[in-house]
């Protein structure tokens, strides 16, 4: 591992200034992904600016009736929060289905959004990878891609975003609060992560030096009736093959609002808007759940070895929607 300077910032603006002026500086929060990538040689920062003690560890209720989650709230604390468990159960479940108890105690909300793909080629510095080393090529397209993308990939990158938490948050219309060299701004979580296109090295729309300070959840009627379900190669402590976050607002049996997002299928947490459109304005029947899944998955473009994800996602969407509809 390359030697690095370590600096503990006094406040978010100082942290931003410290990182912005050095291209090879990185923010450090829980470190569960960054330290690992440094050990692998994927990341080699010359400066770490520690932002884990900047006072972003609180969860506050907003005037609008939602929640403002500080960037450094630990994944375990967010999952245990009663407001999250009662009003946004899909988010608590997504968090608890990710990583292990030990990792959730270290990992932060902001770090979870910014974690990098677990694509084998990205993590192996002896292999080409357009995300790690732009222009070097993508061996995954012809190689090991059984757990990579079926939506939105490009000829340059077929990686998936590994987060469970982000899948729930994207279904909940979360907003990301940022501090940057030119001041604070907010941006919707939908669109925060980028499709790879011809610049897969850029995971998100963040500019160098921009710091996530909080994630805001709006009040959402559908959120109380929500579930997260995850298919993986073992029962616990594994990344998703496919996951589904689903939320429904029902009014006398009719779907007034539907939220469906998929994990493990794209370079971004994938909001299944085509499925949502099919669900609104009618009863939640098994037939209509199938039609919604079909509407989304008709647009999948699986690779040689990951076509299994299409029927897997279809069944997971249908099962999760039917189970959500049965919740009180």
């Amino acid at each position: 591992m390359r030697p690095f300077d370590y600096h503990r910032a006094a406040d978010p603006r100082a942290a931003v200034a410290a990182v912005a002026r050095r291209p090879e500086a990185r923010f450090l929060a829980g470190g569960t992904n960054l330290i690992d990538l440094m050990r692998l040689g994927v990341e080699a920062p010359e400066l770490l600016v520690d932002v884990s003690r900047l006072g972003g560890g609180r969860i506050a209720e907003t005037e609008a009736g939602g929640l403002l989650i500080g960037a450094s709230v630990r994944n375990s604390e967010l999952a245990a929060d009663h407001r999250v468990r009662d009003d946004y159960p899909v988010l608590a479940q997504a968090l608890l289905n990710g990583a292990s108890g030990q990792l959730r105690n270290l990992a932060t909300v902001a770090g979870n959004l910014l974690q990098r793909t677990r694509c084998l080629y990205f993590q192996d510095v002896t292999k080409p990878c357009n995300k790690r080393s732009p222009g070097s090529g993508c061996p995954a397209i012809e190689g090991e891609h059984a757990n990579l993308a079926i939506f939105g990939h490009s000829e340059h990158c077929v990686a998936t975003h590994p987060s469970d938490m982000a899948v729930a948050m994207v279904a909940l219309d979360a907003t990301v609060h940022l501090e940057g060299p030119s001041g604070p701004r907010t941006t919707p979580l939908i669109g925060f992560h980028r499709l790879p296109g011809d610049a897969p090295d850029r995971d998100t729309v963040l500019h160098h030096g921009e710091l996530i300070t909080a994630v805001e959840l709006p009040p959402l009627a559908a959120a109380r009736r929500s579930l997260y379900r995850k298919a993986r190669e073992r029962r616990s402590f594994a990344f998703a093959l496919v996951s589904v976050a689903a939320a429904l607002e029902l009014d006398r049996g009719e779907v007034r609002d539907a939220r469906v997002a998929l994990g493990g299928v794209a370079h971004v947490p994938w909001r299944a808007t085509r499925a949502e459109e099919m669900l609104r304005g009618g009863p939640l029947t098994e037939e209509r759940a199938h039609a919604a899944a079909e509407a989304e998955l008709a647009h999948a473009t699986p690779l040689r070895d990951n076509a299994y994800k299409v029927p897997l996602a279809h069944r997971l969407i249908v099962r999760t929607l039917l189970d959500v509809a049965e919740r009180p």
């Binding site: 470190g31 030990q102 105690n105 270290l106």
Partner: peptide, 23 residues
Amino acid sequence: DHGQCGACTILIDGRRANACLAL
């Protein structure tokens, strides 16, 4: 040494954590 096995689990301020991933 990658946070995947748990053999390094310790308590930091009372909370369990992987010591290998903690600077």
